[in-house]
């Protein structure tokens, strides 16, 4: 059964499965160790003493590529991406992940192999990387590093803004640890997400970027200080996860690869279309497009054009006047029909009542006589043309009883003397 329809075939809201949208996707790292030749790094865990190793991108056994961030995360055999060393003196290091389409992100998590950085930011793009907005900041010095207050209260007014926290900075574990950002956590409208366009927008992202800004806070004690210091300063992450759902606005239960572009798109139902089912299918504009909710699927409805038009447009005024039932206006009515729904015959034609209005020959030409008729428009129902004095017949093509044809086209029938 299709989750987008109930057992009676009525449309109902449907949503794609919850997934790790990052899994298997490419991550662009601004810095990766060993990319410019082998380099030495030293790590220290809680239990063991400091040990040094070599990172070499050309040797698979010693490489720590960015692809390790989104591969299968096996806790018994951790594969870690690792930045170049000396990051304490270097500019920011960033990890950029393209999700390929809009997702509604529930959380972003970063599982560290190295110690957690003192300051990092998570940002998102909603336009495939053209522009970026902050999603969340972590720092022990929020004001100094990011110019934001620490742990600022989240209210209805600012619930679509990034906040800064030092919640990640617990001393233990020294190395490793998970930093997870829950996009709706603490946001007042989260309990009524369905009717909060602000939060629906807030959780929407096409790309995620994690930027490590500072490994250690100034003055923080540094093990092995002085001795090969740079080799200890690097970022290492085993897993970057983006938990969420493919954004389909409640009109699809899955996303599929498009055949032509290979990109991910929603498998739209409810007569919707677009990568995110964010518009109605052509000719289905009788109601305005709306996101589906738990209570109402807001299915797109075909315009009623009685089979005489292939295109229509939506008119909000008419929709409101109809009591929010129908707002479609048919365009280019064919078969000599006219009107909003192509529901009557255009001028010069009349309705053949023996055929339904949807029949392609439902409208017949008036065929008013060029001389006998006073005009070209006939009665819409009967087909009777307006006849000149003394003329008769549906098309005004005969002289009435007691009249005879004259030679004048102005008065074609004159009374018999």
């Amino acid at each position: 059964p299709d989750p987008c329809y109930d057992e009676h075939g009525a449309a109902r809201r449907c949503i794609p499965d919850f997934v790790n949208a990052a899994f298997g996707k490419e991550v662009r790292a601004s810095s990766t160790c060993g990319a410019r030749g082998p380099n030495r790094y030293c790590a220290r865990s809680e239990e063991s003493a400091r040990t040094c190793h070599t990172c070499d991108a050309s040797d698979p056994r010693r490489a720590h590529p960015a692809s390790y961030l989104t591969d299968l995360n096996n806790p018994h055999n951790l594969t870690c991406w690792q930045s170049e060393t000396g990051v304490q003196r270097a500019p920011n290091v960033s990890l950029t992940l393209s999700l390929g389409k809009k997702f509604e992100v529930t959380y972003v998590s970063v599982q560290f192999c190295s110690r957690r950085p003192d300051s990092m930011a998570i940002s998102k793009s909603m336009d495939y990387g053209k522009t970026w907005v902050p999603f969340q900041f972590y720092s022990t010095q929020c004001r100094k590093v990011y110019g934001r207050p620490s742990r600022a209260p989240i209210t209805k007014q600012n619930e679509q803004e990034a906040v800064c926290t030092d919640a990640h900075a617990d001393a233990r574990p020294l190395s490793g640890g998970l930093v997870a950002f829950s996009t709706l956590d603490g946001r007042p409208s989260a309990h009524d997400f369905d009717s909060s366009p602000v939060l629906q927008d807030w959780v929407t992202a096409t790309d995620i970027r994690v930027t490590f800004s500072r490994l250690r806070a100034p003055g923080e004690p540094d093990e092995g200080e002085g001795e090969d210091e740079d080799a200890q300063h690097f970022y290492a992450v085993s897993d970057l996860q983006v938990g969420g759902r493919c954004k389909c606005n409640g009109h699809a239960s899955r996303c599929v690869r498009e055949r032509e572009s290979g990109g991910l798109v929603c498998d739209c139902k409810h007569n919707t279309a677009g990568a995110e089912c964010d518009r109605c299918k052509p000719f289905h504009y009788d109601r305005p497009w709306q996101r589906a909710t738990a209570r109402e699927a807001h299915e797109c409805v075909a315009c009623n054009c009685n089979l005489h038009a292939r295109r229509c447009r939506f008119n909000m005024e008419l929709y409101k006047l109809s009591g929010r039932k129908s707002g479609g206006v048919c365009l280019n009515c064919r078969h000599n029909t006219a009107g909003r729904h192509c529901h009557y015959c255009k001028e010069g034609y009349y309705r053949d009542m023996s055929k339904p209005i949807s029949h392609r020959k439902a409208c017949k030409a008036c065929d008013c006589h060029p001389v006998g008729a006073a005009g070209k428009t006939c009665n819409q129902t009967t087909g009777q043309c307006p006849c000149k004095d003394g003329v008769t017949g549906i098309t005004c093509n005969r002289c009435a009883k007691g009249y005879q044809q004259s030679r004048s086209p102005i008065a074609p029938c004159i009374k018999i003397p």
Binding site: P370, V371, V391, G393, Q405, R407, S408, P409
Partner: peptide
């Protein structure tokens, strides 16, 4: 009784040339 159809050929179009239907 069937009344005869108006015979276009019987009309004198001299003064009404612009009204005369185009013959297909």
């Amino acid at each position: 009784e069937v009344l005869p159809t108006l015979d276009m050929a019987l009309f004198d179009w001299t003064d009404y040339e612009d009204m005369k239907p185009v013959d297909n």
